[in-house]
Structure formats: C-alpha cells, structure tokens
Lab assay of single mutants.
Amino acid sequence: MATVKFKYKGEEKEVDISKIKKVWRVGKMISFTYDEGGGKTGRGAVSEKDAPKELLQMLEKQ
C-alpha cells in the first residue's frame, strides 16, 4: 500500500493511505485527516505535486 510523507509542526511523518479518512483541497495543497490509533485523529497536508496518485484519486472520488 502507498504511504504519504509530510511534515506536521516541524516533524517528519508518514502515514499509510488506508488510514486516511477525509481528503480536501486547500489552494495547491491537499489536506487530510487520518486515524492515529487509540481513538485519535491526526492531520496532515502535502503539496499537490508531492501527493501520491492514490491520495489524488481519493480526492476525485469525493
């Protein structure tokens, strides 16, 4: 499965596409929420050019 690499609050993070719950576009950025486990929801964003094609496909399906 594909992963998304991004920075959040200065920390490098990587999340599996299957854990992503919601995806939306903000200008040229793709924002998303994902399941961190333990009932927590994380947030992240990547630029449109750095987003994996699976993430862009999720955006188109909504």
Rank of each mutant, 00 (worst) to 15 (best):
A45W: 03
I30P: 00
D35L: 06
V46E: 01
E14F: 02
F6P: 02
V15L: 03
A45Q: 07
T3I: 07
Q62E: 11
A45M: 06
V26P: 05
I17Y: 02
G27M: 10
E54N: 08
K49D: 14
E14I: 06
Y34T: 01
E11V: 04
D50Q: 10
A2K: 05
D50R: 07
M29A: 15
W24N: 13
L55T: 01
K49V: 15
G42D: 14
E12W: 12
G39I: 13
A45L: 03
G38S: 12
E36S: 04
K28W: 04
M1Y: 10
V4W: 00
K49N: 08
V4D: 00
D35E: 14
R43K: 12
E12F: 09
T41D: 06
K40S: 15
K21G: 10
S18C: 15
K61Y: 06
K19N: 12
G39Y: 10
K53E: 15
R43G: 09
V15Q: 01
V15M: 02
K40E: 12
E48N: 09
I17M: 06
E11R: 03
K40V: 14
V46S: 04
S18T: 06
K53I: 11
S31G: 11
E60H: 13
E12P: 04
V15N: 00
K28G: 14
M29R: 07
G38P: 11
R25Y: 10
E48H: 05
F6D: 01
K9P: 01
G42E: 14
P52A: 04
E12K: 05
K61E: 07
G38I: 11
K19P: 01
G37Y: 07
L55M: 06
K13Y: 10
K40A: 15
K22Y: 15
G37C: 15
F6L: 02
P52G: 05
M29Q: 11
Q62S: 13
A45G: 04
G38D: 06
W24C: 15
L59F: 13
S47I: 11
E48Y: 08
G10V: 01
D35M: 10
Y34G: 00
I17L: 11
A2E: 06
S47L: 14
E60N: 15
M29F: 06
K7C: 15
G37N: 12
E54A: 07
F32W: 01
Y34W: 09
V15W: 00
K21N: 10
K49P: 07
K5P: 01
I20S: 01
V4K: 00
K53D: 14
D16N: 15
A45F: 11
L56V: 12
E14N: 05
S18W: 09
G42K: 10
R25L: 14
E14G: 01
I17G: 02
E11H: 07
K28Q: 10
G38T: 14
K7L: 14
M58I: 13
V4Y: 00
W24H: 13
Q57Y: 12
G10D: 08
K13S: 02
G38W: 05
I20R: 00
K19M: 14
Y34H: 07
E60T: 05
A51Q: 04
K28S: 09
R43T: 14
S47E: 06
A2F: 03
V46M: 05
M1V: 09
G10R: 01
T33K: 08
V15E: 02
M58Q: 07
G42F: 08
K22L: 14
K5H: 04
A51Y: 03
K13A: 03
A51D: 02
E48V: 10
L59A: 13
I30C: 06
K61C: 14
S18F: 07
I17A: 03
K61T: 11
V23I: 11
K9R: 06
L56N: 06
V26Q: 11
S47Q: 08
I30W: 03
Q57I: 14
K40W: 08
M1W: 11
G27E: 07
F6R: 00
E12Q: 06
I20F: 06
Y34L: 01
M58V: 12
L59Q: 14
M1P: 13
Y8T: 04
W24A: 14
I17R: 02
I17F: 04
E11W: 03
D35I: 06
Q62M: 14
K21M: 12
R43H: 08
S31E: 15
G39E: 10
K7V: 13
R25F: 09
K9S: 04
G38A: 10
L56Y: 06
A2I: 13
V26C: 15
D50N: 07
P52D: 03
Q57S: 06
V23W: 06
A51L: 09
I17W: 01
G42A: 10
G10E: 05
D50P: 03
W24L: 13
M1N: 15
G44E: 01
T41R: 11
E12I: 05
V15I: 13
V4H: 00
K21T: 13
K9F: 09
K13M: 09
K5M: 02
L59G: 05
S47N: 11
A51E: 02
R25G: 14
Y8L: 03
T3R: 06
S31V: 10
K53M: 13
V26E: 14
V46C: 07
Q57P: 07
S18E: 15
L59W: 11
E11L: 04
K13N: 02
Y8I: 09
T41P: 14
D50Y: 07
I20Q: 00
V4M: 01
F6Y: 04
T33D: 11
T41H: 14
L55K: 00
W24V: 12
E36M: 09
G10A: 02
S18Y: 13
Q62P: 10
K7Q: 13
L56F: 07
K61D: 10
S18R: 09
V23E: 01
V26I: 08
A45R: 08
S47C: 12
D50V: 05
K19C: 08
K13T: 03
K19D: 12
G10L: 02
V46H: 02
V26N: 15
G42Q: 08
K13F: 08
W24D: 15
I20G: 00
D50L: 14
V15R: 01
L59K: 03
E48L: 06
L55N: 00
L55Y: 00
A2N: 06
K40Y: 06
Q62K: 05
F6W: 13
K40D: 12
V15S: 02
L56I: 12
S18V: 14
M29K: 07
G10C: 06
G44L: 01
G10N: 05
G37V: 11
K7M: 04
G39A: 11
W24K: 09
G10K: 01
Y8P: 03
K22M: 14
G27D: 15
K9E: 09
V4L: 03
G37Q: 10
G37F: 08
S31Q: 11
T41Y: 07
A51C: 06
K40T: 12
K21F: 13
M58T: 05
K49E: 13
M1E: 09
P52V: 07
G27I: 05
F6G: 01
E12C: 11
E14H: 04
R25T: 11
K13H: 04
E11I: 10
L56K: 08
R43C: 15
M29G: 15
P52Y: 03
E36T: 04
E36R: 04
G39L: 13
I30D: 00
G39K: 07
V4N: 00
G37I: 08
G44I: 02
M29H: 13
V15A: 03
T3M: 03
M29V: 13
R43P: 07
K61P: 12
D16H: 04
S18Q: 08
E48P: 06
K40I: 15
K9L: 15
K49R: 12
L56H: 12
K5A: 02
E36V: 07
K40P: 12
V23S: 13
I30R: 00
K7W: 11
I20Y: 00
G42M: 04
E12D: 13
G39M: 05
L55S: 00
K9I: 02
T3H: 03
G44Y: 02
A51H: 02
K49I: 15
Y34M: 01
S47M: 12
I17S: 03
K61Q: 10
I20P: 00
T33I: 12
E14A: 04
G38F: 06
M1G: 15
E48G: 09
S31D: 10
Q57W: 11
K9D: 14
E12A: 11
A51R: 02
K19Q: 14
S18G: 08
V26D: 05
G37T: 10
K19I: 06
I17H: 02
D16W: 06
M29S: 08
G37D: 05
K7H: 10
T41G: 08
D50G: 09
F32S: 00
F6V: 05
T33W: 12
A2L: 13
D16M: 09
A2Q: 11
K13P: 00
Q62V: 05
I20T: 02
A2S: 06
E11T: 03
I17D: 01
Y8F: 08
L55Q: 01
K9N: 13
L59P: 03
